[in-house]
């Protein structure tokens, strides 16, 4: 019991600022404006189903791209010397010191018509609109959340004992088998927390689509807008999003457990 005492301030904080608001959101989602029980908010929220699917799709694609980019990078970084590792990680973190909105705005300037990228492509005779579509939104998302994928994978990779790899090699594994039998299984926990840390915020983020996308909103933008006039419907959308994300987390954790047991 004693060891739990230092956690009391945080538990209190969580109760007031996490649990209570969560219950309020659920309460709002199941009531109408007069405070009576009602499923009306969910009926109203169904209008935004298409946006919802679109957001999940964008989140999924961004997460996969992040994973594909981050995994090899994290692997090769973890093979570097200690000094090189801290420098590279530091360089990865530097963009995150800048304000989120400024970073997105920088992408607007890069991708816009007559912007640097557009000019270069025009030189080669490629004439495409780079901004105002789902592609631009995905680019923005990947840029924003890539560090959240790299860091956990890298953290796990550095903990893999070199002796394990040597043992595998001694037992006759070639490079490919060392990877599939030793390195990958041991890095799964990192991959899982990386995927969670990228998928969850990309599904619910707002503003990125407003700046880089066209007329297509994402579910985060919709929640923000709906909340300005209608708490109940806004809460209902938030609850649906929470359930999907919760389910996602449960499945991911389960996946992680199994792998860890097998490993």
């Amino acid at each position: 019991m004693k060891s739990k005492r230092p956690a009391i301030p945080y538990l209190g904080w969580m109760l007031v600022f996490t649990i209570v608001p969560l219950l309020m959101v659920i309460y709002f989602a199941f009531t109408d404006e007069r405070g009576q029980f009602s499923l009306e908010p969910f009926k109203n929220a169904s209008v935004y189903s298409e946006v919802f699917l679109y957001s999940l799709g964008i989140a999924l694609i961004s997460t996969v791209i992040c994973l594909v980019l981050a995994y090899p990078l994290a692997y090769s970084v973890s093979r570097c010397s200690q000094r090189a590792q801290s420098t590279i990680i530091m360089l990865l973190m530097v963009p995150m010191w800048m304000n989120f909105l400024l970073r997105i705005y920088a992408w607007v300037l890069i991708l816009q018509n007559y912007g640097p990228l557009d000019m270069i492509l025009n030189l080669f005779g490629v004439d495409v609109t780079l901004i105002g579509n789902s592609g631009a939104v995905i680019v923005g998302m990947v840029y924003e959340f890539l560090p959240f994928m790299i860091l956990p994978i890298h953290a796990v990779m550095t903990k893999i004992e070199p002796s394990l790899i040597e043992a595998a090699q001694d037992l006759g594994c070639n490079g490919f088998h060392v990877f599939t039998k030793v390195i990958f299984p041991l890095s799964v926990p990192g991959v899982i927390s990386g995927v969670t840390m990228v998928f969850v915020p990309t599904a619910s983020t707002f503003l990125v689509a407003q700046y880089l996308g066209g007329t297509q909103f994402m579910i985060g933008d919709v929640i923000e807008r709906v909340f300005q006039s209608d708490h109940n419907t806004g809460s209902a959308i938030a609850v649906v999003l929470m359930i999907v994300i919760l389910g996602f987390l449960v499945v991911m954790n389960r996946f992680g457990d199994k792998e860890a047991v097998a490993g």
């Binding site: 109203n44 209008v47 935004y48 298409e50 946006v51 066209g214 007329t215 297509q216 909103f217 933008d221 919709v222 807008r225 709906v226 300005q228 006039s229 209608d230 419907t233």
Partner: peptide, 13 residues
């Protein structure tokens, strides 16, 4: 009006 406007904003093109 606000509700319908958000719906218009999020409607597919």
């Amino acid at each position: 009006m606000q509700k319908r406007f958000v719906e218009a904003c999020s409607a597919s093109a």
